[in-house]
Design a binder for these strands. Sequence first.
DNA 1: AGTCGCCACGAAG
DNA 2: CTTCGTGGCGACT
Length: 108
Amino acid sequence: MPVTPFQQRVYDAVALIPPGRVATYRGVATRIGCGSPRAVGQALKHNPFAPRIPCHRVIASNLTLGGFMGHVDGPAVRRKVRLLEGEGVRFVDGRLEDSARLHDFGRM
DNA sequence: AGTCGCCACGAAG
DNA sequence: CTTCGTGGCGACT
């Protein structure tokens, strides 16, 4: 699957997320100049750079986990939480415990 | 090339 | 919680 410039922007933005922090689809979308977080989610679900892009650091703006590897629920999401917890980002009841872990791309 | 449907979301009601 | 709207990509026509 050919990678579109749009996806490239998404992957680049996500790759800029430092460890121990998470970004929201909204933040990434705004960062890349896209008002649609849905497009970001779609780009990430394609994930041509699966292990290369820390897509597990991307969560929904409502502090929910969102999805992972094309799964909205299941072992993949569980793995996602485990990865984030390994970086210091703890989740409670499927939600981000510390909202301060949200990475600011510099929104406005 | 134009149109329809899909998506891991967001905001509004 | 439910519904509509936005933006973009894939597939079909």
